[in-house]
Computed example of a mutant assay.
Amino acid sequence: MLEDTGERVIPENMKITNGLLMEHVARYHFAAEYVTGRVLDFASGSGYGAHIIAKSCKHKIDEVIGVDKDKEAVRYARGIYYHPLTTFREGDVTDPGLPGELGQFDVILSFETIEHITEEGQFLSNIYRMLKPGGILILSTPFGEGRGKPCGQPYHVHQLKVEEFKGLFSAYREADFYYQKGVLIQPAAAAEDKNFPLGIVVCKK
């Protein structure tokens, strides 16, 4: 049985009305509109998100690779979320050798990952290297008090301010920002005065 840390989403252990579950699932259904070709789910956790993409986008993708550093999570994902288009493998999102091992992708997804990572620059560099020219990155994070400041979440290094989050993606040709509250995801321009707790970016390399 995969350990529930309080942060990890394990749909089999949660009620369908669980707000955290609905919030996480909503991001993958949002991303499904963009995915095509070869897809990477970076920090894939228990594997439900990669499975959503494989099932809902099977006619427009070649494969989905889920990468997570937790050996038990990878084992769980392989057992519960098998799909012929999906591969789960162990790996650290900050490993500089990972781009050479995995190659490039048409779409990279990484939801609720960056707030856990000290080596933020290496993480973002890996993503950029693994994304094909013209490829799409979709990444999310909760907002908070800012880089280097305590956020009250034991598994988070920090939680970025909105302006810090928006400043991370200047290397991309396009970057469109969205805000999320529960299952509701809105363009930033429509939500900036409504105190949405989470941000999503859709970047084009």
Rank of each mutant, 00 (worst) to 15 (best):
M1L: 07
L2P: 02
L2S: 11
I10G: 02
I10V: 07
P11S: 06
N13C: 08
K15D: 01
K15Q: 13
T17W: 10
N18S: 10
G19D: 10
L21T: 09
E23C: 01
A26E: 00
Y28V: 03
H29Q: 12
E33C: 10
E33M: 08
V39S: 05
V39Q: 11
L40H: 02
S44A: 08
S44P: 08
S46Q: 07
A50L: 02
I52Q: 13
A54D: 15
A54G: 04
C57Y: 06
K60F: 14
K60Y: 15
I61K: 14
V64A: 08
I65M: 05
G66H: 06
G66P: 02
V67S: 01
K69S: 12
K69Q: 10
V74S: 08
V74L: 08
R78I: 07
R78M: 05
G79P: 12
Y81C: 07
Y82N: 07
H83T: 13
L85T: 15
L85Y: 14
T87L: 09
F88H: 10
R89V: 11
E90D: 11
E90Y: 06
T94S: 04
D95I: 03
P99C: 14
G100N: 14
E101H: 03
L102R: 05
G103D: 03
F105C: 01
D106N: 13
D106R: 06
V107C: 01
S110L: 15
F111G: 03
T113N: 02
E120M: 09
F123C: 05
F123P: 00
L124D: 10
L124T: 07
I127C: 11
Y128H: 10
R129L: 12
R129H: 04
G134H: 09
G135L: 13
G135Y: 12
G135E: 06
I138A: 01
L139P: 03
L139I: 01
F143R: 01
C151D: 09
G152L: 15
Q153H: 14
Q153K: 15
Q153V: 04
H156I: 06
H156Q: 15
H158G: 10
Q159F: 09
L160V: 07
L160A: 07
K161D: 12
K161N: 07
F165S: 00
K166G: 08
K166Y: 03
G167F: 02
L168F: 06
L168V: 06
F169G: 02
S170D: 10
A171M: 14
E174Y: 06
F177D: 06
Y178D: 05
Y179V: 12
K181C: 08
G182R: 12
G182T: 13
V183L: 13
V183H: 14
A191S: 15
A191T: 15
E192F: 14
D193Y: 14
K194C: 15
K194N: 15
F196D: 05
V201N: 09
K205I: 14
